[in-house]
């Protein structure tokens, strides 16, 4: 990499997660994973990935030190990516990582420290964006998404939500690239749920290849049937993301194309209000969804 390449420090912190978004990131194709990790993610800019638990070589105190020094020494310069929810029950003791002065560091405190001083925060995946599965009722770990958590701590750092369970790597890499190429998203570039419209501005049902079946009143009654998957519980009518055009895993497939109803995994109401996942949206459920 040429010496005039700009270095953007990035900290990717996993709180209560399944690592699914980290694994999804490794599936990035354009740019590919080598370009993201060691090359220029966009021409002239290299992501200096200071912290990423799934791939980083180091462990232990030296890497906890990275978190602490970055928050201070690079205040306002680094991009924070959070994966997973922030567990707040039992004073944060249901989720700890690392130790400081002999005491376990609650993830909540680490995210607060990092979040307060970041240039911006990207919530990678539905858990970090909205709480998702790990905040499912009755939410035994007191899990919060990043926006709600920042709000509870009075942290003003802007948060861009990149949901999906897990998110498509293009959505995450593209959101970072947008920030690097065009600056932080303007309010009119995000939807009400804080998602970049360039990826989440598409309603799945309206753009679904099975939409003609819906219009013709042809519905699948059981798994494997031809037809619209609405009666099998498809949440496409209340879900927003460009899955129908993008496809997952190097454009190989996506849920509806494979024959599965959409579960609405990019939505703030996933999974609780979109459950049961395999039962159709009733008016009552839809009303609950709209009013929420």
């Amino acid at each position: 990499m040429a010496s005039q390449v700009k270095q953007i420090p990035v900290v990717w912190y996993q709180a209560a997660s399944c690592s699914g978004d980290s694994v999804a990131l490794l599936n990035t194709t354009n740019p590919n994973v080598r370009q993201v990790l060691v090359d220029e993610i966009v021409p002239g800019v290299h992501i200096n990935l200071l912290f990423q638990m799934t791939i980083m070589a180091g462990q232990g105190a030296p890497i906890i030190e990275i978190l602490q020094t970055t928050a201070v020494a690079k205040k306002g310069e680094y991009l924070l990516v959070v994966e997973g929810t922030i567990p707040t029950a039992a004073n944060g003791m249901m989720g700890t990582s690392g130790e400081k002065n002999g005491r376990p560091c609650p993830m909540a405190e680490t995210v607060a420290d990092l979040g307060r001083n970041a240039m911006a925060t990207i919530a990678a995946g539905t858990c970090a964006s909205f709480g998702g599965v790990f905040a499912a009722e009755p939410n035994p770990s007191g899990s919060l998404g990043v926006r709600d958590f920042f709000c509870s701590r009075g942290i003003q750092t802007p948060v861009i939500n990149v949901p999906g369970c897990p998110m498509h790597p293009d959505w995450l890499v593209g959101t970072i690239a947008h920030i690097l190429l065009f600056g932080l998203h303007r309010p009119d570039e995000l939807d009400d749920a804080g998602r970049p419209l360039e990826f989440y501005g598409v309603q799945i049902h309206e753009n679904c290849p099975r939409r003609p079946f819906f219009d013709a009143g042809k519905f699948a009654k059981k798994i494997g049937d031809e037809g619209c998957l609405y009666q099998l519980g498809c949440k496409g009518p209340v879900s927003y993301a460009d899955c129908p055009y993008r496809g997952f895993n190097n454009h190989t497939n996506w849920c509806i194309q494979a024959g599965s109803p959409c579960h609405g995994c990019t939505e703030p109401d996933f999974p609780d209000k979109l459950s049961p996942l395999y039962q159709k949206i009733t008016e009552e459920r839809l009303a609950r969804f709209v009013l929420a």
């Binding site: 999804a24 895993n249 849920c255 599965s260």
Partner: peptide, 15 residues
């Protein structure tokens, strides 16, 4: 993962 997605729809968290 691409091979898995042929029948699984997507990966991680196939359907």
């Amino acid at each position: 993962h691409e091979a898995l997605a042929v029948f699984g729809g997507k990966m991680p968290h196939d359907v």
